[in-house]
Simulated assay, not measured.
Amino acid sequence: MDALARSLREQGYEEYARFSFNELAVPLQEGLRSGNRYATIFFIIILMGFGGIGAFAAHFILTDALSGGQVFWYTLAGVPATLLLVPLHELIHGWAFRWYGAKDVRYGVIWKKLMFYAVAHGFPVNYRQFRYIALAPFVIISLLLAGAFLWVTAPWKAFILGILVFHAICCAGDFGLCAYFFQVRHRQPLSFDDADEGVTYFYAQPALKSENP
């Protein structure tokens, strides 16, 4: 990592933050508290998700497709089922890293925090790349679930709604880190991971530069 850091400094970049993988809740929380477009979109998605559950629950009950208890339990069953999507979620992150040219993609979990991750060792990504890599699992999995929702019966619809909403909540880290990055987008920020040491670095140009988000 020393050679990469030296190369970035030679290009005018400076380190503005670093976090161990255990500490990544700090920047994602800062991002979600920032109130910028990524934080706002995330909270709107969550509100719409719960609103959707309420609307479909009312529809199922009024049309006698499901009872209130059935809606509750089928939807709740989507919560543990979401854990089965974790490997796919992280693989999509990994595929996105590889799409941009990363060769050394690694996967891991911090069990104390039940945090799963995919990182590209020593591979810097800019703001534009980062947001696609971070949000690709949310977009792809949500679209797949929405497509399946259209073709299944009422019990499965309730089940899928539960997965959709809980998976969206689990994407808080992805939206939060995008929001964190967004705050310094005009400084041409870069981020890279040292998977051996378990540290994520954030670099940026010291002078403000115009960049359309």
Rank of each mutant, 00 (worst) to 15 (best):
H167S: 13
F56I: 05
P87G: 03
L85N: 00
A25C: 14
H121Y: 00
L88W: 01
W95I: 07
F21Y: 12
W95V: 06
L4Q: 01
G52K: 07
W99H: 08
R9V: 06
A3F: 03
I141R: 04
L88C: 06
L143M: 04
E90P: 13
P87W: 01
L76N: 12
G122A: 03
F56L: 07
E90M: 07
A58M: 09
F50Y: 05
G108M: 01
K103W: 00
P80F: 06
V86Q: 02
F21D: 08
P189V: 05
T40M: 12
E197Y: 04
F181A: 15
L190K: 14
N22E: 15
F202H: 10
A55M: 12
P206Q: 05
V165R: 01
R18H: 09
L76A: 13
Y100G: 01
L208D: 09
F43S: 10
L4R: 00
Y107S: 03
Q70A: 09
E30N: 10
H121M: 08
S67R: 07
I61H: 07
F60P: 08
A179K: 03
E10N: 12
D196F: 00
V71T: 02
G176I: 01
Y16P: 11
F166T: 10
H121I: 01
S20Q: 06
F50G: 13
V199W: 13
T153D: 15
V184A: 13
L62D: 15
Y38V: 05
D2K: 13
F175W: 10
F72E: 01
L84E: 00
Y38Q: 10
G31C: 04
P80H: 15
Q183R: 14
F149A: 15
F159W: 01
S7V: 00
F97P: 05
G49P: 03
R131L: 03
Y117T: 09
W151S: 15
V119D: 05
G12A: 13
Y107F: 00
I61L: 10
E211T: 14
S67D: 03
S67F: 03
W111F: 09
T82Q: 02
F175H: 08
A25F: 14
A39V: 04
G198R: 05
G176H: 01
V165C: 04
A207F: 03
T200P: 06
A136S: 13
Q188D: 07
V165Q: 02
L32I: 11
Y107D: 02
P80I: 08
L83S: 15
N212R: 14
L8G: 13
L143N: 13
G12N: 05
S67P: 05
V139K: 08
F166K: 02
R33E: 06
M115F: 10
G12V: 05
Y180E: 03
T153K: 14
Y107L: 02
G173M: 07
H167A: 14
F149Y: 15
T40Q: 10
T40Y: 02
L145F: 01
G12F: 08
D193S: 14
P189Q: 02
L91S: 09
F116S: 11
T200V: 09
Q188A: 10
A195G: 09
V119G: 08
